[in-house]
Design a protein around this nucleic acid. Structure first.
Lengths: 210, 210
DNA sequence: TACGGTACTGTACCGATGGTACAGTTTTTG
DNA sequence: CAAAAACTGTACCATCGGTACAGTACCGTA
């Protein structure tokens, strides 16, 4: 996903390679049918090597999810920062952010590979309580972040219709998660960015009326 | 799920029971980790009994998906019919439909159990080409049906902003699929109906401006 | 250059699972 | 009551997650 800035030790490199392979497989087959044998064969290591890095499969699941969410926050931080540099106004900054977000999703060469969190939610019984709580917390954080922006907007702009800002914040997560599914199912990578722009149009209509 | 109107033969009853148990498990653990042993033990039959009804596991997957989509069309047919009886105007009929849809989703006692199609999309490599094509086709049909309504609306109402009606149609599927995930993850059954109403607010704003 | 940790490999094993094959038996239905 | 439908019983196989543990190659540091 991202560009490595710091050099990784050999062990860390292998760990990352295992996780890259595993994540790709999990997003296509689900966690349960992603076999350890398959991962190690693709990574060119032995089973002992795998269990050197991860206590068990649930430990791998947890590490994958942690890395995924960390990466997501970084991306959103970056996009919000970029948007804030382009406009001081909270509404316009948010609209710019949404445009940047849509562009980023549209630039993915093979379309979005799938949201790991969503994948986990559809297999929640496979994971430990700890991992399940991580998906919940992930969605809560998204809500809080988007809600924070919407609060700033609502302080300056009068909404054209009565809206619950938590719902409006959640809607971005929902549209994105749902659009990823549709994008994959319909084999249309451009569907995801277009849906983000639909949400953008909604926000615009609510606060600007056009 | 639905009320049985016609009597089922004993074999059909068993088949339905197997599928009920399987669907529940699939939505919580994914298809791969839904074991046949677990299904038959809960259904009170033997493994041979299972394979009397289904050629193999993929055959079960296909039957589950077929039944699920058939049921969905019936529900939407019913809701559209109800809405059409309450208003002749395409926009108001659609808005009523969305309200009825939201209410129905809000009335599910334990929240929405999960969308089987979405679950399949996140495990597409597990299934035969035929089954994967069924998820694609399912989403295409939804698009066509909603798009059809939006076309009728656009013929009478001037949209306040430029919108692509296919995107707008897809957005309902996306919001619903995404909201189901959020609902499950945040353990909040009311999130799904609220998100449907968000979409409703968007449609209203686009065509009515309020 | 010796040392100690890091990062593995190799081998052997276990219980559970998905799936296949097929013969035999009970139950339902026309 | 006979045929078809709806199963049961048994045996078997490869794969999978996981455990246990001994051995080894490499790598930075004192």
């Amino acid at each position: 996903m991202g560009v490595q800035t710091q050099t990784l030790s050999k062990g860390e490199q292998t760990r990352e390679r295992i996780m890259d392979i595993a994540q790709d497989a999990v997003l296509h087959k689900g966690f349960a049918s992603t076999s350890i044998d398959e991962i190690i064969s693709e990574a060119g290591i032995t089973k002992s090597g795998f269990f050197y890095h991860f206590r068990d499969k649930n430990d791998l699941a947890k590490a994958l999810l942690q890395r995924y969410t960390d990466e997501e926050w970084k991306v959103f931080d970056q996009l919000f920062k970029q948007a804030d540099e382009l406009s001081e106004d909270p509404l316009h900054s948010f609209l710019i952010f949404l445009k940047l977000f849509a562009d980023l999703m549209g630039d993915l060469p093979n379309g979005h590979p799938g949201c790991l969190i969503a994948s986990y939610v559809y297999q929640d019984f496979l994971f430990s309580r700890e991992v399940r709580d991580m998906t919940t917390e992930g969605h809560r954080i998204w809500r809080r972040r988007f809600r924070d922006r919407l609060d700033q907007i609502a302080a300056r702009y009068l909404a054209r219709v009565e809206v619950n800002l938590d719902d409006m914040a959640d809607m971005l997560s929902a549209v994105a998660d749902g659009a990823i599914i549709l994008s994959k199912s319909l084999h249309d990578p451009s569907l995801l960015p277009r849906q983000i722009l639909q949400y953008r149009a909604y926000v615009r209509l609510v606060f600007l009326g056009n």
